[in-house]
Simulated scan of single mutants.
Amino acid sequence: MELTPQLRRIGNDIVAAHLVIAGDGITVIDAGLPGHWRDLQRELAAIGRTTADIRGVVLTHGDSDHIGFAERLRRERGVPVFVHAADAARARGEESTKPAWGGLRIGPLLRFLGYSVRKGGMRTQHVQQVREIADGQVLDLPGAPEIIGLPGHSPGSIAIHVPAVAAVFVGDGLTTGHVLTGSQGPQPAPFTDDPATATASLSRLEGLDVDWVVPGHGAPWRGGVPELLAAYRAVAEA
């Protein structure tokens, strides 16, 4: 789905990945679920590109619903996969956590689980080799993505600021569509390791001049960062 000619979305409000498109190639932000591979092919075909144009995958964190087709791209196409050093072991499948689920409603939960199963969530392959990145780096990839440390959801969660497309990708630093409750609007994401740290980390987004704030779950936000953070804090502090 096209958000702008240079920014496209794979998946939906339940689980999404994104493409940053530039003259020198494509940067993939997160890799969704394994079944999103076909969606990736369709999206590339729609713009006259192929996987040969992908220069790198940048993961907002190492959880299974964000690494879906990353290993396939790395193994079959030689595409490097970048992840914060603190989440490298998680992306490789060497460690995991079991954060509390919190509140839920049966309908949204079943939609989330059903979509995950249909998109191959039970057969996710961990990334065998990753390139570790750190807060403050600007990667030599299309769009020149800037890394902003956003710990809390996981130790190595990051935001990815891409000025070329006026967007910041926040992964599970927050959500605009809660997959367990169905609640809409900016709010804390489920399955978060350290909720207090996750909320505090969002202050690092203040001052960003972007048109899009793009979570891994929920609709992209176009209302500006100050408005997003105000809406988030109203929910988090309630």
Rank of each mutant, 00 (worst) to 15 (best):
V170N: 01
S157Q: 09
L205I: 06
W101M: 15
D53W: 03
R8K: 06
S64P: 06
R42A: 09
H153N: 07
I147A: 11
E95C: 14
G224I: 01
G223V: 00
V15T: 11
T199I: 15
F82I: 00
L19Y: 05
Y232A: 00
P220W: 12
S64I: 13
I158L: 08
G107V: 15
L33E: 12
P151K: 06
F191C: 11
G207D: 07
G223A: 03
A196T: 15
I10Q: 06
L208G: 04
I14Y: 11
R131P: 02
D135E: 01
P188S: 13
V130H: 00
I14F: 06
T4F: 03
D39T: 04
T197F: 13
R105H: 14
R72S: 09
I148S: 01
G173P: 03
R233C: 03
T27K: 03
T97N: 11
D53S: 14
G218A: 02
F112H: 10
A31C: 11
L110N: 08
R233G: 05
S154D: 07
L205D: 02
R55N: 04
V235K: 09
T124G: 03
Q41H: 10
S64A: 12
G152P: 08
M1H: 14
S201Y: 03
S96A: 15
A219C: 01
G156L: 02
R49V: 06
E2R: 15
V210E: 11
A16M: 08
H161A: 06
S116H: 14
I14S: 10
P34K: 11
G23S: 15
L40S: 02
V79Q: 00
A88C: 03
L59P: 06
A234P: 00
R111Y: 12
S64D: 11
Y232H: 05
V214T: 14
G107I: 11
V213W: 00
L40M: 04
L3G: 12
T124M: 08
L109I: 05
D135C: 05
T192L: 12
R90S: 00
G62K: 04
P155Y: 12
D63R: 06
D172R: 07
S203A: 15
P215H: 04
V130A: 04
I160F: 08
T181M: 08
H153G: 09
S154W: 02
H84R: 01
A238S: 12
Q125I: 09
E146S: 08
K119F: 12
P34L: 11
G35S: 10
L113F: 14
T176M: 07
R9W: 14
S157V: 01
H217A: 04
A134M: 15
T176S: 08
I26D: 02
G216W: 05
E94A: 03
P108W: 13
A91C: 10
T181N: 01
G143M: 13
G35E: 09
G207V: 02
A22Y: 03
H217I: 02
K119A: 13
V83R: 00
V225N: 06
R75W: 01
G23Q: 15
S64L: 13
L139V: 13
